[in-house]
Design a protein around this nucleic acid. Structure first.
Lengths: 346, 346
DNA sequence: CTGAAAGCGCTTACAG
DNA sequence: CTGAAAGCGCTTACAG
């Protein structure tokens, strides 16, 4: 008897209060409560004060589900998060959620592989009527984006450009990074430059590669060697093991990411090569590890905070104005000079 | 004229269909549609087929807001994500969302500092009536947890134990790690062991420290030196710079995290010390960098995937059964032997 | 400024 | 198994 009473009592004690409860306690109508919680709602200061006091006493919090149902605005943004190791995406995620919260939105997280799992698993995402989606996955070539477009849900792709899709994207200037890398290497006397490529399917990799190759060819008259790897530390090491034992090995490497470059460095040193004397190196991303004492990797830094904020800005702009002109924002990268490039000799 | 027509037409075209639309097309009642989408709902196969066909034609997706409103179950879990650099949390986040999706829940992300920002900003979290919360922040000592408890919302703390709070938590066996570290170091002849501590406010750090100190004192008859740092790479380097120039510097270091240990290694090498000959080292966490060629750090690995899955299991258990008995789950750590400890001499 | 009332899109007793 | 109807907790014309 006592045992069955207890859960009941708890339920009652913890029952969340509604606007009707607040209205009763405040001695006003339920509409008045709603208005008091609506920015710009037409209520007298007196009524608002009574409502707020009652609401506080009851621990009232407007039910977002009821609100969303009636206003047809969920206040929810979907964020597709990739299953990668790169700290870049974690940083982006933090900045994104922060910016979104500041604008009054909440973030629903969609792990990448959930969606990749197959078409039959309709993402819960759409059940919650997200108002917009930010896609971070660098390799995802799925139809998620198309599905959003069908449903008229704005999408911003962060850090990637899908082929031919007319969706918004915010990326750093990968191509310019490639061009600059070529110039830096050639200016320091490199004659056998190489590019260590990450995942070929990503726009990030393709742009860095083409910028680099194009400029090398212009400067040197021949293209660099291109080694196809992937975005991991291990792939960098493997690339180094193959490339650096060649008859005339590369003397300057531009790596698609810092992680690759660091993998190269570790193996190159193991092989007794000195950096930057015998091998010069440039990375991309400026991950925390690039600044570590043991690496001091010269690299390009992207302004992740700005990329995240612009993504949110563009997304919210489309949500609010319901315009569907497409924005393709390219943010500059900055060279971070550290120790893997030789000094420029006068 | 044309311009004002267009948006309207678009709105219509993209208007999401409801169960009533589906019912009309399928020639059944709206209730039948609802039942067809409810697992175990009492509908004939024939009706279900008609409904599913119509639903597919219309691109119907049940509105989670309407459903949540009527069932009083949001299907949403809040995840508090810390603003840290450690890859551990990113991994945990991926495993968590994956496990949650598999169970039919969606994840709302709460960036740590949002909530820390001040009490006046009531977390949107509660507006969405999350059914449970998983807290990952290692340093957060906020009242979020208490607030959840007040509202009878189950909470699981992942990787941390709050002082005196009677909430669920899933952690790895930090204390045993400390004990094992002490034994490993002493067995290899260390006479001047030291602990480099991370953030003092975290249970993680406290348990690693106390396990280590207790066991060192038992084995050696005196306590280890304890250097107060924080959980960063930089703090490890700073600690090394101070400790390793002492008259009789430590000969064996247990670091609260791998990141600290790696910071120590980089500086120790810069100072010309050879590892493990002149300085032995043990980390904690087994982050990817610990396995890098340049470090080969001996460390303890926690099974993040299991920790995440158990957290979800415990949380859902409390949500479904509405029992509030508290679970405190401690998962074992395993030693990952690499190169920063000397060989045991027979 | 205020309240009564309709309605958002579902689920679920209730009565066949 | 099926449908009509109530109701979840809000917002928002509508009429004072």
């Amino acid at each position: 008897m006592i045992e069955s009473d207890k859960p009941l009592a708890q339920k009652n004690r913890n029952r969340v209060s509604t606007s009707i409860d607040v209205a009763k306690l405040a001695g006003v109508s339920q509409s008045a409560v709603s208005r008091a919680f609506t920015p710009g709602g037409s209520v007298s200061e007196e009524t608002r004060a009574k409502v707020l006091k009652a609401a506080k006493a009851l621990g009232y919090r407007p039910n977002a589900f009821a609100k969303g149902l009636i206003t047809q605005q969920s206040g929810l943004i979907g964020i597709v998060f990739p299953s990668t190791q790169s700290p870049i995406y974690t940083q982006a995620l933090q900045y994104l959620t922060r910016a979104l919260v500041a604008e009054g939105y909440s973030s629903i997280l969609i792990p990448f592989d959930t969606y990749a799992d197959g078409d039959h698993s309709i993402p819960q995402l759409f059940h919650y009527r997200v108002e917009g989606v930010i896609v971070m996955s660098s390799t995802l070539e799925s139809h998620l984006v198309e599905e959003c477009l069908d449903l008229n849900i704005p999408v911003v792709q962060l850090g990637r450009v899908a082929r031919g899709a007319n969706t918004n994207c915010v990326v750093c200037d990968n191509a310019s990074g490639g061009v600059m890398a070529a110039e830096l290497l050639v200016a320091r006397g490199c004659l056998r430059p190489a590019f260590i490529a990450g995942d070929h399917a990503t726009s990030t990799n393709r742009e860095r590669e083409s910028g680099f190759c194009r400029r090398i060819e212009q400067l040197l008259g021949y293209p660099p060697l291109v080694y196809q790897a992937n975005f991991s530390y291990e792939a960098g090491g493997a690339a180094a093991r193959e490339l650096l034992v060649m008859p005339s090995p590369p003397d300057g490497l531009f790596c698609a990411t810092d992680l690759i470059a660091i993998g190269v460095m570790d193996v190159a040193r193991e092989m007794g090569l000195s950096i930057p004397d015998q091998l010069q190196l440039i990375g991309f991303d400026d991950i925390p590890q690039a600044a570590w004492v043991g690496y001091q990797l010269t690299t390009f830094s992207q302004d992740i905070e700005r990329i995240a904020e612009e993504s949110v800005r563009i997304l919210l702009c489309q949500i609010k104005r319901d315009d569907n002109r497409c924005t393709h924002l390219i943010l500059p990268v900055t060279l971070v000079q550290r120790g893997t490039l030789r000094e420029l000799t006068g």
